[in-house]
Design a protein around this nucleic acid. Sequence first.
DNA 1: AGTATCAGTGAGACCTAGTATCATAACAAG
DNA 2: CTTGTTATGATACTAGGTCTCACTGATACT
Lengths: 144, 144
Amino acid sequence: MSELESVIRRLEELDHRITPSRVAVIAAVLSHSGHFSVEDIIRQARAVGRATVFRTMRLLTDADVVCRVLLEDGSLHYRVSRRGHHHHLVCVSCGNVQDLDECVVGDLVRELAAATEYEIEGHWLEFYGRCSTCRSPVAVAARP
Amino acid sequence: MSELESVIRRLEELDHRITPSRVAVIAAVLSHSGHFSVEDIIRQARAVGRATVFRTMRLLTDADVVCRVLLEDGSLHYRVSRRGHHHHLVCVSCGNVQDLDECVVGDLVRELAAATEYEIEGHWLEFYGRCSTCRSPVAVAARP
DNA sequence: AGTATCAGTGAGACCTAGTATCATAACAAG
DNA sequence: CTTGTTATGATACTAGGTCTCACTGATACT
């Protein structure tokens, strides 16, 4: 079963109709191996209305087909998600994204909940850096 | 020395001029005990131009007078900062912000750097939940 | 089949948050 | 006093996203 079909299955299970517009958006989304902006998808699926692209992106986010990637400058990108709740390490130089295997703050959340009496419902966590390819050996050696 | 004066000192040390517009923005900023948006400041300091408010907010961020608070919906707010690098626990119900004493992911950053060969330069981390006041005893008891 | 209903749609107006431009003003230094 | 620098406000603009609304096309009921 292709990835497209499996996403369609997922939406059907959640009682969403499969329309040509949605299929076009999903196909555009799946064509990316890295992260992308909604504007990228709007450009790719030119026949689909702007509002519909945004609506479909929300659908896909809720269905865990994509996850949101917060870039360092605050802009929001998306990325096809192939695992559950996780976080990202984004290379600020080449834009490459490394998925962290699992949520690394689960323990922290429990500790904080105990210490603060908050009931913690969610969190944002993104790391930024330079991947091994982008940092030159010289730059590494020069670091204190 | 008032808080206003101490912020003014800080900017002077960084070679920024102290102008009436900047003082108005700083006073508006200091009038908030919680977090606030730039639009709040623009509303409060109506005599100051929109661009100048944004410019001054950047100045204050760079001078560590305020820190940025990322809300769950992705919107950016500010908060007077009284310590160095730290993170926030935001109540999604009343908006109250709890500062976490120090950065809780320092160790994590070092581990990740070793595991991924990334040189990690920065991160975003915000927690969301409901403070003890906002969660009713009933709701707490009902949680699994 | 007929019709009522409802999810989904695109066009476009609108909104929010922020940046760019630019002429002008205030100030500092020589 | 002149010259260069920093800061300013008005305004236009942009990016990213939401709202409205008339319309379409499936679905469900009779």
